[in-house]
Simulated scan of single mutants.
Amino acid sequence: MDQYKDIKTFDQLIDLEHGKLGTESRVEYEEKAQMFIISEMLKQARKEANMTQEQLAEKTGTKKSYISKIENGKGNIQLSTLFRLFEVGLNRRIGLTFL
């Protein structure tokens, strides 16, 4: 617990737990965190559209199992597929921000 005594910010905690930006462990952590966010956004948008996973898959030319995998944060999604799911399947605009 001594290693946590000087931690005052969330960024410091993440650095301690997962390494500094650019390290392999931090990149892996950041990828998983972003996938979780995308999966939750997809799930929420699909539910707000009153669509089942099967309906979304049919509308976008994918499979229900793929939608399920993405919503559970288990899959790897291509940017083109992400756009198709949101813009074609759910009639939602998507934007990217690079920091």
Rank of each mutant, 00 (worst) to 15 (best):
D6H: 08
G75Q: 00
T9M: 12
E71S: 03
S65C: 15
L90A: 06
L56T: 15
D15F: 11
I94L: 07
N50C: 09
Y4K: 15
I67F: 13
M51E: 02
I70N: 09
G73K: 04
K63S: 11
E28P: 13
L16D: 00
L56N: 10
Q44I: 14
G75T: 05
I14A: 12
K8M: 05
Y66W: 04
E71C: 04
I94S: 07
D6K: 10
E17I: 10
F36Q: 15
N91H: 12
I14W: 10
L99Q: 13
F83S: 08
F86P: 04
G61A: 02
I7T: 05
K59E: 03
Q34I: 11
E31N: 04
E87A: 12
D2W: 10
S65M: 10
K64G: 02
S80Q: 01
D6W: 03
N50F: 15
F36K: 15
D11H: 12
S68C: 04
E28S: 03
G95Y: 03
T9V: 04
D15K: 00
K20I: 12
E31K: 14
I7L: 05
H18A: 05
L82Y: 09
L21G: 11
G95A: 01
K5T: 15
Q3P: 11
Q55G: 11
V88R: 15
G75F: 01
F98D: 03
F86T: 02
F10Q: 11
V88W: 04
E31M: 08
T23S: 07
S25L: 10
G73F: 10
M1S: 14
K8C: 11
R92V: 06
K74F: 08
M51H: 03
L16V: 11
G89D: 00
V88G: 02
F83Q: 08
K20L: 01
G22A: 08
R93K: 07
E40G: 03
A45V: 14
F86Q: 10
N76H: 14
E31D: 06
E30S: 13
E31S: 02
G75K: 02
L82W: 00
Q12N: 12
T97L: 06
A33C: 14
E40T: 05
Q3W: 09
A33K: 13
Q34W: 14
V88K: 10
D15E: 02
L56R: 10
E58I: 13
S25C: 06
